[in-house]
Amino acid sequence: MSDPKQSRPKLARRDFLKAAAVGGAAALPQAAAAQQPAAAPPAPAGYAFLNAQEAAFIEALADHMIPADALTPKGTEIGIHIYIDRALAGAWGKGDRLYMQGPWKTGVPSQGYQLPLTPAQLFRAGIDSSNASCRKTYGKTFDRLDEKQREEFLAALAAGKITFDAGPPSRVFWTALYQTVMEGMFSDPIYGGNRNKAGWRMIGFPGAIAVHRDNIEKYRDKAFPNEPVSISEMS
């Protein structure tokens, strides 16, 4: 397996700044991200936040929402579960930038998020409530459902048809859950998801490489080479 770092021209950020400052006339070479051969199954990454039951839920969710096909490997193979775990374990999960003073009121939807929960607490309660709902309907937790049942449950959750007994509002949980799946698919791979830039490759997004001054005309109505470059590859 080739090391993509070796096959790529070095692009120092100071050089970029210099090129940009003189007007960008000298187009920078497109950093060629080597197409990697089919990666070997990644080593288990371990969990920093999710417990076993929560990990099983998130893994099942990631693989159901992002199934393997010609476009990408399945969700856990591109690290969506790892992205979510790290996000919940980190500052965001612990409520960074979240105003957490009471009193706590439900309010109206136009007032936005009003729960007394950090994202990590919301996910913990939401996964638990989801599994309780699945046990009630199907007799088993979400990760043990078959594909049809998973689809049925997620469709009901997304449509607001599931009510959590004594849990947080299901729609609030779903909105946060869905957003983190998308983040795990399309954020830079340094955060643990979008492994091998699979999400970016799927849509043809070039990633962190972003000097398009001469490309506006050159690629007008034409496909741009689908060779995304991540932050770590440019560092």
């Binding site: 409520g95 979240l98 983040e183 830079d188 962190a208 932050i231 440019m234 560092s235």
Partner: peptide, 21 residues
């Protein structure tokens, strides 16, 4: 570059914005 090219940090997590906490 490259650290500024980070949608999660700057768009989603509001790295340059006011801290509502």
């Amino acid at each position: 570059v490259p650290n500024i090219r980070d949608e999660l940090r700057y768009v989603v997590r509001h790295d340059l914005m006011m801290d509502t906490a």
